[in-house]
Nucleic acid binder design. Structure first.
Lengths: 216, 216, 216, 216
DNA sequence: TATGAATGAGCATTCATTCAT
DNA sequence: AATGAATGAATGCTCATTCAT
């Protein structure tokens, strides 16, 4: 017995609306999205949407924040796997890089970026609620890990923030191009190659002799 | 003598509308833009807009293509300045990098990217008419230059396309972050620092001993 | 007690819009009619019109069909009164003719004809949905009655369809002229005279000796 | 020498516009017609139309009047052929009837009727300038001829106006139906049959023994 | 005279939002 | 809480008409 459907129903409905909202916003953009379609996708009536959210703007911001939360959690989990390995650093970083590449190409992630980009003029809050909590947060987490590797002597002494920024740059920018702004699915092999090339360049720039790169 | 203003009126009006259109589309996004505002900014009446362009979509696409043309021309001109210098490669690349960084942060450039990103689902043509003619074209031009440097022994043997892709990645992605998706003007000093760091990493990864980097 | 006004509201509104639509279309013609005026006449807001009908075209077609339905019902009822009388056929036919003359001069009927005539090029469907269900249907019903009279020996043997066609022609065409295409109300006396002359000619052409016309 | 093309050109242009106007008005109806299309069909520019005619309304009225003139002339010519024949009246009337049937089915004629019908509310003048000069005028001319036949003893004593009215009614109303309001071309054979049936009924009602009908 | 260009006014249609149930 | 119905406010687009050449 899961209990009465009363309070549970509400929560589910609210969540369903949030999910539907992000889906439709992602598909059409903010202005082209009509609340009617969100309601339909959520399996609710239009007024129900307004019972849960103040208006279209609020719904958009909440849906974006929620999606940002999800994306960030996944990315942080990936980065959190970084540790100072006993052997080569390369394979570890490549695995991480590949996972991040996959993650940033996934639909929700792409939509989040596109919507933020498109609407940041109209909703400056997105910078904090979304960008700050995803891109920035990820860069910080990665910087932390890189600092540890640096202290452990596995990377040369450097500004971890800059290193993190460049690691992500070498990863995300090429993936963006390869996916044609997200309109094309990047084959796993290509994503792996991008990750490998990124790590290769990264280690050439930031590695130490103890990094034990193959090339060394 | 600039000639009579007679026939000029037409061309100027059309151009004025195109310019106004890009300005307003950049400010508001495609759907939030109303033709009325474009007309006002262009100093014309609404029907005049429709005399020159089929409809809002066509106007958007033409305005985007024109802006893409402009942006591309500037970027290509910057890259075209690359040559095999007698002395250090570093200063040359840093100058190029700085100019590109400035260029990609400039308003038109940013708006073009944001609008393409936001509307590529609705107007798949943008991929060709805008993205292909700006980002891709720039990457190709840079790859050509890097290939020459490689042949000249100033860069290690490498895949010039990959090198180009990474050079641009190290430049544009950090600038994107620093400018907070274009909502903040990046100080010249910061842009210069980004350029320097990018070139530093690039040369560590792709330079040769004859590159004569300071660090060497 | 007519019951709660709750669910009625919907049906009434829709009907009110249909009625208003026909009124305004009749007054102005299809293209000159603006939905705004229909809404006003119906006591509704413009979007309400669009909640009930797909678009202006659909509204027009439904309003025409509904009006056709009404007109047809009345005309069929009139014709249905024809029977084989014991005495003279003349008075009966004259009564019927007079009623039909009145009916086809009435505003709704005239408007239906005029609108069908005017828009049949743009809405070929009108031929079926309106013309077929009014003019044609009436002619068929009358033909049936005339066939019965013929079998009863009250009319000479003839093609009932042709007789029906001519009976109606003798009635409607003159009424059309007399009413100046519907811009003038035909006095009852004049309508009666038209009916009488029509029946007179009809019986001269189709009557038998047992018809017992005065002239006989 | 036909002289300079100056004044001639103007006249031709004006006529071309009038013709084009009627063509397009007939095709689309008054309100749906845009001056642009008239200009195109006439091979002129829009302002040229306004150089010749005050505005759209004036153009419409003139085009209608001109078309009415043409139609009337043809119909009067047909009726004018009626004379008191030596032999049977039937064949003569049938020939006349057939010609009138053809004439009233012809495109210009139909369009004139439909447009008058549709716009008589908006342009009451049409009643005089068009209807009066076509339908009424035709009925009068025919009445004159029938009066002569009556005096000549070839038709029974009667009200010639009523006889004329009914003759035309028996002709035009069925043709209207058969042509599905002008959307279908009535085959010559069918038109001939309608004419024959009309004349048959007419002579049964208005003929005399000297009419020498076959049936007699 | 004829015309390319420009415009004021208007209209169908959509949509976010609110009532009444 | 959820919804069918209703609406005020926009917005894209068209068209009759007028300038300026």
């Amino acid at each position: 017995m899961t209990g009465s459907t009363g309070p549970r129903g509400r929560i589910d409905k609210r969540q369903a609306i949030l999910d539907a909202a992000f889906t439709v916003f992602a598909r059409r953009g903010y202005a082209q999205t009509c609340v009617q379609e969100i309601a339909e996708v959520a399996g609710a009536a239009k007024p129900t949407v307004y019972n849960h959210f103040q208006d279209k703007e609020a719904l958009f911001l909440e849906a974006m924040a929620a999606a940002g939360e999800t994306v960030m959690a996944r990315n942080l989990a990936i980065v959190d796997d970084i540790h100072s390995p006993k052997g080569d650093l390369g394979p570890l970083l490549e695995r991480i890089a590949h996972q991040l590449a996959q993650s940033c190409c996934e639909e929700r992630s792409r939509a989040l970026r596109a919507l933020t980009y498109a609407e940041v003029n109209h909703f400056p809050n997105l910078l904090e609620t979304v960008y700050g909590r995803t891109a920035n947060r990820l860069a910080e987490a990665l910087a932390g890990k890189l600092a540890q590797l640096s202290l452990a002597g596995r990377l040369r002494t450097c500004d971890p923030a800059a290193a993190s920024e460049q690691f992500l740059a070498l990863l995300t920018a090429p993936m963006e191009t390869r996916s044609r702004l997200g309109t094309r699915k990047v084959p796993a092999a290509e994503a792996k190659a991008v990750a490998k090339t990124a790590v290769d360049t990264f280690l050439r720039a930031y590695g130490t002799t103890t990094t034990n790169r193959k090339a060394a």
